[in-house]
Design a protein around this nucleic acid. Structure first.
Lengths: 109, 109
DNA sequence: GCCTATATATAAGA
DNA sequence: TCTTATATATAGGC
């Protein structure tokens, strides 16, 4: 968008990169908020700039809460210092999942 | 954008809401990737649809790693340099395998 | 999902 | 930063 096209690769000019970073970061967060409101979704976004600064957005509650929900969804606590349970069962589950993947892949052929 | 303007509030029509959700979700993730590449940033995004389904993007490494970095940044040395152990990796792998299975299942339809 | 017509985002420039 | 010309995103309609 704008006066010229843009190559999808790291912008080398530091000044231009910083300007673009600010603009697009604002745009991204705005879009995230919009999606959240329009479609009743919960969204978490965090951005680490190249220099390590953090920018974040949680459309509902706090980022911590969203991260916890994320952890529950994917299958394990992340930030909490919760000790994990039963490594054995985990390995067993991995084996079964891999098997299922193989079956599915065969189905695709 | 588009043929008409849009009110910044929850879209009531379920069908339209679903369509918009798909379109804008894709747009948001694309923008996140672009920002990441252009400005050399690390970005994590996760979206829970109203129905609880998770969509995510981690522009570098895994979401887990980004979340860990997030935790270190915000919570300080919460779980200091706790070397991540077996069980966590297992959980991570399970999450990834499940994701792959979903993708394969979609391919079968 | 694939098409336009429009609304937005944003690259250059000052 | 603010402005302006263009590139993109996407609402509404098949």
């Amino acid at each position: 968008m704008g006066r010229g096209r843009v190559q999808m690769k790291r912008i080398e000019n530091p000044v231009q990169r910083q300007v673009t970073f600010c603009k697009r970061r604002a745009g991204l967060l705005k879009k995230a908020k919009e999606l959240s409101v329009l479609c009743d979704a919960e969204i978490g976004v965090f951005i680490f700039s190249a220099h390590g600064k953090l920018y974040e957005l949680a459309t509902k509650g706090t980022m911590q809460e969203l991260i916890e929900r994320y952890g529950k969804y994917t299958g394990g606590p992340q930030l909490p210092d919760e000790p994990m349970v039963e490594p054995m069962d985990a390995k067993k589950e991995i084996g079964m999942l891999k098997q299922e993947i193989e079956i599915l892949q065969k189905g695709l052929r």
